[in-house]
């Protein structure tokens, strides 16, 4: 078990190194950093001095090592655009994105799994068919369209929920602000979460349904019936648990994508998260923010995958033993 975790950790570090390389190359070679920093009337001597001061004349390897050294300490330099430390900027925006992603993942799971189980168990009822039809919409409609539709119907026409922003936030500790404890914060969360989570929800629902249909045909389910176990024990104990491994995989991967692709939802709802920051950075070629964002998203992906691997082991004993005896 420990060896398994360690091996995964080494792999994770490898992935992070490769991503930092890409991020570094982006930082160093897309455009000239000095040009981004100074005005048009700066003399060539001053430029050369700045270049030397920034260490841009050092060998590439030394620069890369320095980049990694600083990245490990969360130092990604100064944003060209805001003239503030990138770490600070991201630190302010991170809570908004994480809260939004967490709530939409929760929504996707809590709604998607039961719907999947239901459509798997009672696949010929009209409700199951209705779920499937709705899921088709969720899979095929693009996120921004869903967001705009929701704003149009719920915010503009019905006036029930706010159409943009995070509502009132409360500082919890450090720079972490949360909208989860105020009424307006929670209200503001609803539409963006649904928008961001709808695709994942339908994906999970279809996945659970497919897995349920498969598992219900297996011999051990037939044997469980022959043993006279109750429907509940069979459906939720024996069948559902066997569908979990693929569901955990997909959910894990999807949480990564939710965080990474919150960009669109954040734009539609003017959600003050990292995605919006990233988009502003792209528009003004703010390389330090882009590089840091890339690293952060890669880190989250790697972290989530690592946790998913550990979860497998908790759910499926065969994986555990397979590792121990190999």
């Amino acid at each position: 078990m420990l060896a398994f975790a360690l091996r995964r950790l080494v792999q994770a570090i490898g992935v992070m190194l490769v991503v930092s390389l890409i991020s570094f190359v982006l930082f160093r070679f897309v455009g000239d950093p000095v040009n981004q920093l100074v005005g048009v009337d700066t003399s060539p001597e001053e430029r050369a001095a700045l270049r030397e001061a920034l260490g841009l004349n050092d060998p590439v390897l030394v620069q890369f090592a320095r980049f990694i050294g600083k990245a490990v300490q969360f130092d990604f330099g100064i944003s060209y655009q805001f003239k503030q430390s990138v770490a600070g900027l991201i630190g302010q925006r991170l809570p908004a994105t994480l809260e939004l992603s967490f709530v939409s993942a929760l929504f996707a799971l809590l709604v998607g799994v039961p719907m999947g189980v239901y459509t798997g168990l009672y696949r010929d009822t009209w409700l199951a068919r209705a779920f499937l039809a709705v899921s088709l919409i969720g899979v095929s409609l693009p996120t921004f369209l869903i967001g705009i539709l929701l704003i149009f119907v719920v915010s503009v026409n019905l006036g029930w929920l706010p159409s943009f922003g995070r509502g009132e936030t409360v500082r919890v500790f450090g720079s972490w602000t949360t909208g989860l404890v105020t009424a307006s914060g929670l209200q503001s969360l609803i539409l963006p979460s649904i928008t961001l989570g709808l695709f994942q929800m339908t994906l999970i629902m279809r996945l659970v349904r497919g897995e349920m249909l498969e598992v219900l045909r297996t011999d051990y389910i037939k044997f469980a019936r022959a043993r006279g176990l109750s429907r509940r024990a069979i459906n939720f104990g024996h069948a559902l648990k066997n569908t979990l491994v693929p569901v955990i995989t997909i959910t894990g991967l999807q949480i990564g994508s939710i965080i990474a692709f919150a960009i669109i939802t954040e734009t539609v709802f003017q959600w003050p998260g990292m995605g919006l920051l990233f988009l502003q950075a792209v528009q003004s070629v703010d390389i330090p923010i882009m590089a840091a964002y890339l690293l952060l998203i890669a880190f989250l992906f790697v972290l989530i995958n690592f946790l998913v691997d550990l979860l497998y082991v908790a759910v499926d004993p065969r994986i555990r033993i397979g590792e121990a005896t190999r």
């Binding site: 297996t218 011999d219 051990y220 044997f223 469980a224 024996h238 648990k241 066997n242 759910v315 499926d316 004993p317 065969r318």
Partner: peptide, 9 residues
């Protein structure tokens, strides 16, 4: 088939 009659989990 005893290999598939028991729930693996």
């Amino acid at each position: 088939d005893p290999l598939t009659s028991l729930n693996p989990l």
